[in-house]
Computed example of a mutant assay.
Amino acid sequence: MEVALPSSRQHIRPLRSRKDILAVADLIEICFADHMDFDGREYIRYLRRFAVPDEGLTGKLLEPFQVPVRGLVWEEDGQIIGNLSLISFNRQGKRYTLIANVATHPAYRRRGIARLLTENALQQIRERGEPEAWLHVREDNPAAIHLYQSLGFEEQCRRTSWLWEPHYGFLPKVSNDKIRVLHRQASDWPLQSRWLDEIYPPEISWNLSLDKNRLKPNFWKDLWHWLNGGEALHLSAYRNDLLAGVISWQPTSAYADILWLAADCQHEEEIIAVLLPAAGRRLRNGRPLAVNYPAQRAIEGFRRAGFQPHVTLIWMRIQFS
């Protein structure tokens, strides 16, 4: 016997207070416990830190304007049992909205709550005049994939996050007589830039922390960085004396530092196997390393380099007519 679902108008409202934030943090932790990684747990801690109220007059006056995330919640009997976050990005004059953290408490599932939250979010995005909306879903979550497809979302790509962590052991030294690894030269940039655009195209780079201007060679910028004790790493791989790949390191405050990989697709397997461990060994900072790459590409190369697949996400988009 199916449970009759009351009108969503009675239960869906905007997320709007510190009290909401604490309940949402608890809900996300419950719903994603099986897959939550270090950055996910840090996000939960961030929400809970914010949820501690400022009891002063200023804190009370500013509270309605200080909620760190936007979104919708489903509330029943005074409890938040459903959530959907809306994250906005502005890149190169274009606005993007990402739907995230769609969660329903396990005791209330199979009642259509996630569908109704998503439909309401899409209506809001459409009414703001935006032409599209995006979301990410794990490829091992067929129920969610089916839900989003039924709402009109279409798959755009699949991306795998590859990870190396210190407890995996030392990065291997992969030898290849055809490949030499050297410090990047300024003359390598045109090919690196072109490969970056192929591997991280504009239709997805808006949701990545890739900033090509930061990676572009610049003598004065690099000198200032060095004089201030900073560290930069850009390595090029030459195959039979022809440039075949470049890797650039980006330190982060997240769990893992990022390696931006740009390689000739014809030789990416062998380039990745040599270039990734070479970069990791030169860094020697004990930090985990992550690479975002198109799914199902260069799998053997990443494994030979000592990296393991962390998660594969399907990027989905819906366009409004």
Rank of each mutant, 00 (worst) to 15 (best):
W315K: 10
I318V: 15
T312Y: 05
S321W: 01
H310P: 02
V291M: 08
R303K: 14
A298H: 13
V291A: 06
V311I: 15
A305G: 05
A295C: 12
P294E: 01
G301C: 09
G301L: 07
Q308Y: 06
T312C: 13
A305K: 07
Q296S: 14
F320Q: 04
I314H: 01
G306K: 10
P294V: 03
M316A: 03
V311P: 01
A305H: 06
W315N: 09
L313C: 02
A298I: 08
R303T: 13
A295L: 07
V311A: 08
E300K: 10
F320C: 05
H310G: 01
A298S: 15
P309N: 07
Y293C: 00
A298F: 12
I314A: 09
V291Y: 06
F320N: 06
W315T: 10
L313Y: 09
F307E: 00
A305W: 04
F307C: 05
I314S: 07
R297T: 15
Q308R: 15
F320D: 03
F320P: 08
Q296M: 11
I299M: 12
R297Y: 05
A305I: 06
H310C: 02
Q296H: 15
R297N: 13
V311C: 06
I318D: 00
V291D: 04
R304K: 15
P294H: 12
Q319F: 01
Q319T: 14
A305V: 07
L313H: 09
Q296C: 10
T312S: 13
M316H: 02
Q319G: 00
E300C: 00
Y293K: 02
A305T: 08
F307H: 03
V291W: 04
R304L: 14
R317P: 01
G306I: 08
R304G: 01
W315I: 06
T312Q: 10
M316T: 02
Q319L: 02
F307A: 01
H310D: 09
W315F: 12
F320I: 03
L313W: 10
I314Q: 09
I314V: 14
Q319R: 14
Q308A: 09
I314P: 00
F307M: 15
I299A: 11
F307W: 08
Q296F: 13
F320A: 04
R317N: 07
S321L: 03
R304F: 00
M316Q: 13
F307P: 10
A298C: 15
V291I: 14
A305N: 07
V311F: 10
N292V: 09
N292G: 10
R304S: 12
E300A: 12
I318H: 04
N292C: 03
F302D: 06
R303I: 11
R297L: 14
P309R: 00
N292K: 05
F320R: 08
A295E: 14
P309T: 05
F302H: 13
N292E: 13
I318R: 11
W315H: 14
T312N: 09
R317M: 07
Y293D: 08
R317T: 03
I318Y: 05
Q319C: 12
S321I: 01
Q296P: 00
G301T: 12
V311Q: 13
I299R: 14
R303G: 00
R297A: 12
N292L: 12
P309H: 04
H310F: 13
F302N: 07
A305D: 05
G306M: 05
